[in-house]
Amino acid sequence: MESLIHLEGVTHHYGSFCALRDVTLGFEAGAIGLVGQNGAGKTTMMQIILGLLRPSRGKVRVLGFDVPQRGVELRGRVGYMPERDALIPGLKGVEYVALAGELCGMRRQQAKRRAHETLSYLELEDARYRNIETYSVGMKQRLKLAATLVHDPDLLLLDEPTAGLDPDGRAAMLDLLSAIAGRPLKSLILSTHLLGDIERVCRHTIILDQGRVVGQGSIDELRDTRPSCYQLRWQGDGREFLNLLRELGATVDVLPRPNRVRLHLPEHVPTREVFAIALQAGVLVTGLEPEQENLESAYHRLISAAHPVLTVRPETAGAES
């Protein structure tokens, strides 16, 4: 099967600044999330995948195309939805989408027909003859998506597709992306700071940090790499119990509900030690379940592992714009 993306030792410099460092990764068709802080290299990677930027070093193949050599052909099979508006004021919705289709190699009549179909699919048929300046934020996002889909690309590159949408609009957009990602032999790369969006749409994730890939693989794989985290529940006075656990070297995060904590055990400590300490402290352990780590936790863990000294605060890490 043809690999969707294959990057081998890709490095890119802007002057003395290294935006991507020796990135090697490969993915089969499917939905892929791209996560990283500001300056992590997401934009550069998008540009390289789109064939608009030639990497300083390394090989790039996307959909079987050698990207630096055949960027124009590649873009005929890729749909790109940028974060910023990228609209052409003065055009009507249907003209904008048809123009995108024509620029992707469609004949004029075909492009017009497809523009109408795509706008109907995205529930913009009532607004298709309106000037695009009059569209709301949500409509503009859908219009951009329509321009991305009009030529039925094999790969979608989506940059913050839910930015600026209200909760209902966001849910609708994610449903739409999930449906698109579910089509056979179609793939998408979703770059966003909202890790929940990635969990909902994507099966694989690439985590970038300072130009390096610090994590890649299926979301389940990334979650599974955290074996020593548990949710602990007990009955009785837990103060001494928790103190004893801390003395053991465990990290205890108090959860909002009573008699319940998130417990990080050191790797060398077996879980039976927890029961032994409970017996010693006179409490009854009612639950010790391995915690299902979400993508956000995995992201912070991987970023922290890449920078042991730097503590990444969840509230700031996700606030990139």
């Binding site: 789109l50 960027g71 124009v72 990228a86 995108a100």
Partner: peptide, 22 residues
């Protein structure tokens, strides 16, 4: 500004350059 300027100012350039053209 309509023919050239707005492509730079309002993202039209992104629209054009990300298509199947050089």
């Amino acid at each position: 500004s309509i023919l050239v300027g707005r492509d730079h100012q309002q993202g039209g350039m992104i629209f054009f350059l990300s298509r199947r053209i050089h």
